[in-house]
Structures are given as C-alpha cells and as structure tokens.
Amino acid sequence: MKQSLPSTGQISLTRRQSLKLFAMMVAGATLPGCFGQSSNPVSNTAKAGHWPTLTIEPISLPGYGQDPNLIVPPASAWPKTLTKQQLDLVSRISDVLLPAEGAKPGALSIGAPSVVDEWVSAPYSGQQRDRDSILRLLMWLDEEAQIHHQQGFLSVTEAQQKAILDTIAFGESHAQAGYEMPARAFNRLRELVLAAYFCSVPGSREIGYMGNVAISGDYPGPTDEAKAHLDDVLAQLGLSEYAYTEAG
C-alpha cells in the first residue's frame, strides 16, 4: 500500500487498495458513509463487444490542496472538461435516470450534469478512474447508436435510446456478453447522478434527511413512530425480550 516516500500518487494507491479491502469486508452489503470512488476501474481489455480503446488524457492539475477554505469552498476547484456533446449526453442520461416527477425536481434541474462534470474533471486518482470509464461510456453510446441506427445517441428516438440503455442498465452481471464494460461504467455514472440528486436540498429532503439543524436542550431521539417501528422489527426478529434498557 505504501512504499517509501508518501506522495499524492502513493497515497491514492493506498486509498484504492483500502477501498478494495473495504469492498471485501462489506461482504456484498452496502454501508453507511461516503465512499464515492469506484473500486472497480473499467479496463479497456474487453474481449467481446465494442468498447472504445483510445487513450484518454488524464487531468494533470493540482487539487484544492491540504488547507482549502472550508467556510467558503471553491465554487470551481478545477476547470470542468466535458465538451458540450459529452455534457449533453450526461444530461440526457441524468434525465432518464431521475426525471422530474410532479413537484419533485429531477436530476437535471438540481444540476447533476454539472456535478458529474466536476467529478470527471477532478485531478484525483479515484475520479480519474471514473473519468476514464465514463468518457468511454459516452463514446460507446454514440457508437452503439451508430451501429444500430446510423446516428449519434442524441439523434435517435427516445424509444431507441431506452433500448440501448436497457442493454447496460441492469448491472454488469445481467448484461449480455460484450456489454459488461459499458454496464459497469453506466452503473458508476448512475451512482454519481443519484449522489448528486440526494445531496441537493430537495433530494436530501426527499430521501428523508432531517438533520443539520441545531437543537436546543437534549437530543430528542427517535419519534414515537420510529420507536413503534423498532418494536415491530424486534418482534419480527424474535428480539423483543432483549430490548435495550438503561439498566442494561
């Protein structure tokens, strides 16, 4: 994980490896906390199917440093690098993933494409791996549309777009042979769009985050509704007799 002199590059390696370890430890489960970097970089060695193999230039810029302003975070810590064409593709996918529903905004209106652009333009190694796979995915979408419809992805009908996305939107393990790489990359992009959405003010309200407000006096703890639900859970799991009491 670390050889001799820690440098940004080596520490990033550390992080990647610890994420791998972390992924192993969670035993296929999900976790609280933020681990927003891919631990499964998409390689360009797919045997089946088409998958863009061109060289994607890495971002070679300094990050925000080890003493950035925490009170006023930089509005733009590094230049965003997606082209208009790429951004249009990300926008289209964002809209398909999380469209506006009634009074609830969609991923587009909370600005998910811009968050993705910031992410894939960041100089850090985790984001650079995502950059590599997501940029290839965007190229793949156009290639796939060209193969089937002789037009770019954004030029084909909505139904045709959906048909293409359906081949990669249900997970790597459900993808047909040759579609694993775009499926994996799509999953990563989907995670980023979801994260951007639920980080937003309306998104965090929608998922049910009610914290980050000052409470005067003692912490009130679970509501009656939450306590009643817990009682049901304990009963369902056969744990009612072991319910916590302050006396232990």
Partner: peptide
C-alpha cells in the same frame, strides 16, 4: 456505524434501471 446521515457522494442500494424504482 449506522444512521440517517447527511447524503454525500455515496448512495446505498442495489441499483438497476432508472426512474421511480431506482
């Protein structure tokens, strides 16, 4: 480790498809 934490760059779930179900 548990709780309704402030959403960040990681979202939990087994994600398939898009839209409402997602």
């Amino acid at each position: 480790g548990s709780g309704f934490r402030e959403p960040g760059a990681g979202v939990s779930g087994d994600f398939k498809g898009y839209g409402s179900d997602l």
